[in-house]
Amino acid sequence: MTRMGRTDPGASELSRARMSEEEFRALYRRLRDQRPWGPGDRRGALNHLTSAGTQAAASEVRLGRTVSLAAPVEGDVTPDNPDPARHLMKGIPGTGRGVAFGMDRIEMNIHGNADSHLDALCHVSFDGELYNGVPVDTITANGATELTVGLAANGVVGRGVLLDIPRTRGVPWLEPGEHVTVDDLLAAEQAQGVRAGRGDILLVAVGHRRRRRERGPWNAAAYRAGLHPEVMPLLADRQIAVLGSDGNNDVAPSVTEKVDFPIHVLAVNALGVMLLDYLQFGDLIRICEEADRWTFLCVIAPLRLPHGTGSPINPIAVL
């Protein structure tokens, strides 16, 4: 397959970047078969994040500054959020004497295209199986019983590495349909003086949130920037623990024939890499540019949903 350069892709370039179903399935089998863990494994790439790695990540804290990587939960109907979260007031304190309480309830679609969330290893099935051959019937109407977000109940804490692809390309954002290549990742590492490695929480900025803020919401389910499937062997070789983006990691329309979410399939299903979708990097990018460094302590704390296929999240970067 021809790799794309770092210029805006035209129609002919997008055509060359497409991956056939046969090519994709060969890549899927290659990544699946190179997993270093046995058939009983249920942690996936979290195995790359060791206690020693977490201790080392703490040394990234030098400024004592914290920044959220989550977007505010939105309640408005927009083209990318047709089923928004509902924040309901269940109790409003009166003005009388004595104790009273304000009471809230929230309802949300965890895996939507607007709110920041984590995808657990039970989120993606392919050819009738979940990660590591776990049967899909482990997901029932009452929730999942295997590979749930409960695997991250104690939090995921490690070194975060942010690669800002629009910055490297010299553009404000990648347009919907554009994709991040291996060349993009390597160029960003060189420009930013970093190298993602074993146990890292890799965050790849495509500028989705900035484009949404400046241009307004659009149908992100149908059109969005993301990663090309060709990047996954590099991330597997680097032993990345978690992958996140300010989009949902996948390009739309898909560049892969008959597979709409190739990154989700390769990351979650083949490699056991939990995904962080629709994060927000604006504040983090500003601090990283000021400090001239792109690594930090990253703390991910999903809700304790024992049977969940994912969770809303508010990851925190500590610099």
Rank of each mutant, 00 (worst) to 15 (best):
G75L: 14
S68E: 13
V77Q: 02
A70P: 10
T66V: 06
D76M: 11
A71Y: 08
P72A: 03
L69C: 11
M89V: 15
A100I: 03
P79K: 00
R97L: 03
I92M: 14
P72Q: 05
G102T: 03
R86T: 01
A100C: 04
E74F: 09
I92Q: 11
T95I: 06
D80V: 03
P79C: 00
G91T: 07
T66D: 13
P79H: 04
R97K: 12
R97D: 03
R105L: 10
R105K: 12
R86M: 10
R86E: 07
D80M: 06
G102S: 12
D83E: 08
A100R: 15
L69D: 11
D76T: 11
D76Y: 09
A70Y: 09
V67R: 09
A85L: 01
N81I: 06
V67Y: 10
A100H: 09
V67G: 07
K90H: 11
G91M: 01
D76P: 04
P79F: 02
V99M: 10
P82G: 01
P72F: 00
G96T: 15
A70C: 12
G75V: 05
T78W: 04
P72V: 12
P79N: 00
I92C: 01
P72S: 09
A70N: 12
L69H: 10
M89Y: 10
G94I: 06
R65D: 04
N81K: 03
K90R: 13
R65H: 05
A100Q: 09
P93C: 01
T95M: 01
N81P: 00
G96E: 13
T78R: 15
G102Y: 07
P84D: 08
G91N: 11
T78H: 02
D76W: 00
L69I: 11
G91E: 01
R105H: 10
L88N: 11
L88E: 13
